[in-house]
Amino acid sequence: MTSGAVLRAQEVTFGYNRNHPILRNLDLEVDAGEIVGISGENGSGKSTLLKAIIGLLKPQQGTIRVRGRAGYSPQELLLFDHLTVRENFRVFGRAAGLPRARIDHDADSLMERLGFTKYRETKIGELSGGTAQKLNFAISLLGSPEVLVLDEPYQGMDHASYVAFWEMQQALRRHGKAIIVVSHLIEDEKRFTRTLHLVNGRLQACAQKGCPYCGEGPP
């Protein structure tokens, strides 16, 4: 890994069916303080790549190295539906080795910033899609991970929350966190330090204006 790199994937090949790999000799290096956007067609392997990065899938070839801990916000809500927001924070915060008082403090702060404090004692199954997504994202921040892996993290968020989300990303970036975001929104590209397209199992750098993978490119 280069000195600033916190994530390095080399020659990664993975497929659910070994004869049809989704990721083919894929390379990726992300430095501290970067926000890398990844886009691609449906089924191109974006979520698979993220799962490989956080260690849920083992590449059939190649290596992935992450310096420090990774926080993960999956596309779908995978929390305890019948526990409250606060209880879910405690379950996941405990995994990061945090004491309860610290978890509650961090959870209160995150809920405040993302605007869902009033749902603190609400069960997950009763939350709206957007609020549940905010919680998903907030939980990924517990324990201050060095790398954040976010799979379409702002689906269903209202505009104010979306703005707050990006303000938080910029603050995290300034604190040296590396962030990888899967996004389909072309207007997000200006917020990334780099945009990559996942095409035929490999990552291609966005060529900005006239990029063949994103039409007209970012404004």
Partner: peptide, 15 residues
């Protein structure tokens, strides 16, 4: 079935 659903995020979180 519930454990299978939430296993991945729990592992990533550090369990």
């Amino acid at each position: 079935a519930e454990a299978r659903r939430v296993a991945d995020p729990l592992k990533v979180a550090g369990y």
